[in-house]
Amino acid sequence: MSLAKRIIPCLDVDNGRVVKGVQFVDIRDAGDPVEIARRYDEQGADELTFLDITASHEDRKTMADVVEAVAGQVFIPLTVGGGIRTSPDIRHMLKAGADKVAINTAAVNNPEFVREAAGRFGSQCIVVAIDAKRVNTDSEPARWEIFTHGGRNPTGIDAVAWARKMVDYGAGEILLTSMDRDGTRAGFDIELTRAVSDAVSVPIIASGGVGNLEHLAEGIIQGHADAVLAASIFHFGEYTIEQAKRHMQDKGIEVRL
């Protein structure tokens, strides 16, 4: 009897619509966040993460409507990331029904924002999202730095030290994405995941690179992650969440079935 490791599907939302083609068979509207959220909930998703990729700030208010609609139908934890820059942004999302917000660029620009947000809203709803990229040469020991703007802008900040700092500032959870692996389907950067997970006291969500079910199990067993986040392997109907959980269970991982 113990705590289950979590599987978290991630949905990209642009102007209120789910993009990057979720392809469930027999779904009526492939872009409807409520319907997709409901499907994942039925399959046994442990949480859902919505990433707002809306370009313009004015259109962001539609994200709150999306969260509100989903939260009235789906009763599992909801995290919203993308464009969370101020305390009013956080309050707005929590009020709409989000349970957690993921803060990324705003934390890099102003680490005090994380401290302020955790103080005001509680650490349990503050997820710090870290986009990390390997920067060592082959002959050097492994080292990762934080990048912003989808991996384009280096910051010179060490990823492991940054994770520690964000936990000190009140982050309740870390969403860790390997920018080297994101989109490759080659599996998580296990070394990165383990380095960060072992360095901090709070749960780690591993992200970036999942291409098959074994990758999910590796992230937990070898990477010491507490949760795994994936998009494409679920969206394109290759695997259901339940299949993923059965596979993890076969590997000896505690899951909620």
């Binding site: 113990s2 705590l3 289950a4 442990d46 072992d198 006291s201 749960p203 949760a227 505690e254």
Partner: peptide
């Protein structure tokens, strides 16, 4: 306590206790 380990895997138990656990 902040120094608890999972008896099964030996890895550190994270705080907060976050996620789905069994209610007996």
């Amino acid at each position: 306590a902040t120094d608890m380990n999972d008896p099964a895997s030996g890895t550190r138990l994270k705080i907060p206790h976050m996620g789905w656990n069994q209610v007996h």
